[in-house]
Design a protein around this nucleic acid. Structure first.
Length: 822
RNA sequence: GCUCGGGUGGCGAAACCGGUAGACGCAAGGGACUUAAAAUCCCUUGGGGGUAACCCCGUGAGGGUUCGAGUCCCUCCCCGAGCACCA
């Protein structure tokens, strides 16, 4: 018999380099991954964040995210769902444009090449993608409908135009995105960046703030990673307070927003944002020059450094005074750039005693600081060495009739008094800004608006969509400060759709986040040219059942997609108002503890790993690295483990193919372990606990080998369970085991709950809480039985003998703890 | 500063509701096979002590609750991510 061992059968080795292309070909030929969008009885929409097709190709971080999402999709498919798993390309935007500028080639020429390369990589990965329904946001057939969506918002009054500050590089003569500004200078030419006020298009997302917030708590609509939901709550930034008018000698009152109306008696001065419209009215002749100088300096700063929080506070006295409506005292009016025009009313009542920023400002300029809040044991006029911001257990002091009240009572009473006097009211404000969608750039969908001197801004009629982005040679921004599209005269000049007179096109293009705010709708209907999305398909497939993506998009993309969905819902176009039923944020793959980036030179390209180990081993390896929702450090050292696992499973398939096992005794231990493994793997995958699911399968495979078992039905089910992780491998094994169609048409294994637990358990025996031994007893044994068995153990005996037994704690099937004296 | 994660062997990590800490994998060491190596297979592997049976210590630090704490409570330190003058 010994001669049998070590026989090597030619052609039976696991060779991913031949198996993987074979199955990728078959999947395409058999249309394995193209569900019937119009008739699927159990549809499951499995979405992942589409990539921006860079020239470098996909890196390991992308592969990690896609694999994790794909595993879940394949799992759902095996559980009997028809899974729609589309993939597309987010190809517009500043990254493409900057790269194109650098190499001097129009992005329209570069993008198709990049997409081709991405498609090759994604195919090699073995994703369950429905390539029949792919899309690229740069395709006119796609952005036609992006423009259509803009028009829906325009018609609903949600899109509007206003002046807003942008970063302007005077040397490059172009608008910069915030991330292109580094420490106040242009990242390309290093010249100081300034602000410019341009007319831009906005979406009134602030009108949806309350709803965007409320839905986050509605578990019927949203089952999201807590971290993502928290980021959104943060970003929306609801704060409750009051709006209060402070009369001025100049006539018009200054309206402020505060979250602490209870501290109004401590408001000893006021601060306006430098851009505030009342600055001129309140400024006196003597202060005029200083105020002007300060306002000009503030305007010269770039948008980013204006907002940096830790810099020293500066400001200028306007010479004017307002009256504190509670103390009736005059309070000086200052301007300072720590007050932002964009938030609240652009003006504050400064309470230096109880606000850190106001305290710093007052200290620097010698302004009065009054205590109006004191702690329980604190005297009313204890000096303030710093701003005192505590609220709990504090009371109002030096606040007239309100002194002595708690912060919350005082707050309510003061707001009521202000409301009664008609000079204030309780109010809620949000940190959330309206979404600026204008980009003074080339590489984006043109905003479909035409300006007519007679009719004003007119929507491009739907029949004229798309407004195609012209292919122009010089897409470089120039001195004019407006989009390069304005130079393309035959495109720029157009007849007014309403009156026919000469008119001009909007030259701004829209933000890429608008492209990605609705792509999940388009995937379903990519072959339909006459509508953005087919409503019957929308009804069948949406909202998205599972969306997996990175938390770097926690606020922008995910919030904008929710907002656009709400608007379309309100227009009666969608039957739901939240697009993603379940969202899970995956972790980040880093390299040597740092984010992968080209500048660091630590980007890992997956192609070589797939070539060396095979996509299946690589997928398994990535998923085994650690918890999927936490990410991890990429280290290629561990790749051999998953590969070995596949080879051993391959051998097991091989064994049950060759041997006809009749009457092989299935040990009870294997049966129990098998049922427990099926249960664990199922539960773990459901919760995205991929690493532990894989560990459980490895452990079970080890058990099979140890007990020399290769029971065919078990091996078949094990192959099904590794299929989500190693799809090509599983297909090949399935075929060898006699499977006729795809392994993904098989059914996910089920288990017998009663067989997941053994009839004999090993319990810990503790003496005074320290484990001294373990004993095997029947499951569900009584305390007396367990104790009797435990006391027979020699080690336990030594620790309890001659001592008074005070107490016995028995946790059934777990442990028994004997507490003794001394 | 705020919010959310996290800190467990040489490394990646596991541990249900408070109940045998370190599953699974990597690396390392030893052995088998081989002329040899690779591959494969078997064994060992948290630290310390002991000839051994065994014993002590151990989950970032310090306290606490408990028969029992990686897990709960308090105080603090460190790392990562995001937001950041939001009135």
């Amino acid at each position: 018999m010994e001669a049998m061992v070590g026989i090597y059968i030619v052609g039976m080795t696991y060779t991913p380099e031949t198996i993987e292309p074979k199955w990728q070909r078959r999947w395409a030929e058999r249309r394995t991954n193209e569900p019937d969008l119009d008739g699927a009885p159990k549809p499951f929409y499995n979405l992942m964040m589409f990539p921006y097709p860079s020239a470098e190709g996909l890196h390991v971080g992308n592969f990690y995210a896609f694999t994790g999402a794909d595993v879940f999709g394949r799992f759902q498919r095996l559980r009997g769902y028809q899974v729609f798993e589309p993939m597309g390309f987010d190809a517009f935007g500043i990254h493409s444009e900057n790269y194109a500028l650098k190499v001097g080639v129009n992005p329209a020429e570069l993008i198709p090449k990049n997409i081709k390369n991405f498609t090759r990589q994604l195919t090699a990965l073995g994703g369950m993608f429905d390539w029949k329904h792919t899309l690229a946001t740069t395709d006119p057939a796609y952005y036609k409908w992006t423009q259509w969506i803009f028009l829906q918002l325009f018609k609903a009054g949600i899109a509007y135009k206003k002046k807003a500050a942008v970063n302007w590089c005077p040397s490059c003569k172009t608008v910069l995105a915030n991330e292109q500004v580094e420490a106040g200078v242009c990242e390309r030419c290093k010249s100081p960046v300034e602000q410019r006020n341009l007319e831009q298009w906005f979406f009134r997302i602030t009108g949806y703030a309350e709803r965007l917030l409320a839905n986050l708590d509605d578990s019927d609509k949203m089952d999201w990673s807590a971290s993502t939901a928290a980021a959104q709550r943060n970003w929306i930034g609801r704060s409750a307070g009051a709006q209060i008018d402070f009369p001025t000698a100049a006539g018009s009152a200054i309206r402020v927003f505060t979250t602490r109306p209870d501290t109004i008696f401590g408001a000893t001065f006021m601060v306006l944002a430098p851009e505030h419209s009342l600055v001129e009215a309140v400024t006196t002749a003597e202060q005029g020059a200083a105020v002007d100088r300060y306002r000009r300096a503030a305007a010269a700063k770039d948008v980013v450094s204006r907002r940096v929080g830790d810099k020293e506070k500066t400001g200028v006295f306007t010479g004017g005074y307002a009256t504190n409506p509670m103390t009736k005292k005059p309070v000086p009016i200052w301007i300072a750039d720590y007050v932002l025009m964009e938030y609240g009313t652009g003006a504050i009542m400064a309470v230096p005693g109880h606000d850190e920023r106001d305290f710093a400002f007052a200290t620097r300029y010698g302004l009065e600081i009054v205590r109006v809040i004191a702690g329980a044991e604190e005297p009313d006029s204890a000096p303030l060495a710093e701003a005192m911001v505590e609220i709990d257990g504090c009371r109002l002091v030096n606040s007239g009739q309100y002194s002595g009240q708690s912060v919350s009572d005082g707050s309510k009473a003061i707001v009521a008094a202000l409301e009664a006097a008609g000079i204030g009211q309780g109010m809620v404000k949000y940190r959330l800004y309206d979404w600026c969608i204008s980009r003074q750039r080339y590489w984006g969908p043109p905003i479909p608006i035409i300006y007519c001197d007679g009719c004003g801004p007119v929507a491009v009629p739907e029949r004229d969509l798309p407004v195609e982005l012209p292919l122009i040679d010089d897409f470089r921004p120039d001195d004019s400060g407006i989009s390069p599209l304005a130079r393309h005269k035959e495109w720029y000049h157009v007849g007014c759709p309403e009156c026919g007179k000469p008119a001009r096109r909007e030259t701004d293009v829209s933000d890429t986040f608008l492209d990605s705010a609705w792509y999940h709708l388009r995937y379903l209907s990519t072959e339909l040219a006459d509508r953005p999305f087919d409503s019957a398909r929308v009804k069948r497939w949406l909202p998205v059942a599972s969306y997996i993506g990175g938390n770097e998009h926690a606020v922008l993309h995910l919030l904008y997609a929710r907002f656009v969905t709400m608007v379309l819902h309100d227009q009666g176009l969608l039957h739901f108002d939240e697009p993603y039923r379940r969202f899970r944020a995956h972790g980040l793959i880093v390299k040597d503890g740092a984010k992968m980036s080209k500048s660091r030179g630590n980007v890992v390209i997956p192609d070589e790993y797939i070539a060396k180990w095979g996509a299946d081993s690589f997928r398994l390896f990535l998923m085994f690295l650690g918890p999927f929702e936490e990410g991890g450090d990429f280290r290629d050292a561990g790749l051999s483990g998953p590969r070995r696992f596949l080879e051993r499973l391959w051998d097991l398939v091989e064994q049950c193919e060759r041997r006809t096992l009749t009457g092989e005794e299935l040990h009870r231990s294997i049966v129990v372990k098998w049922h427990a493994t099926k249960k664990k793997v199922t539960g773990d995958i459901e919760a995205l606990g991929y690493n532990t699911a894989i560990a459980a399968m490895m452990e079970f495979l080890n058990a099979m080998r140890d007990s020399n078992c290769s029971e065919r039905s078990i091996v078949k089910d094990l192959v099904i369970m590794v299929a989500p992780f190693a799809p090509h491998f599983a297909e090949e094994c399935w075929e060898r085991l006699g499977g006729q169609s795809s392994v993904f048409d098989a059914a996910w294994p089920t288990w017998d709950e009663a067989l997941t637990i053994d009839s004999v358990v090993e319990i810990a025996v503790q003496v005074n809480g320290k484990t001294r031994a373990t004993v095997r007893i029947p499951r569900g044994a009584s305390e007396s039985g367990a104790l009797e068995r435990a006391l027979r153990d020699p080690t336990v005996k030594r620790f309890v003998e001659g001592k008074e037994r005070k107490k016995v704690i028995y946790v059934k099937d777990r442990l028994i703890n004997i507490v003794v004296a001394g």
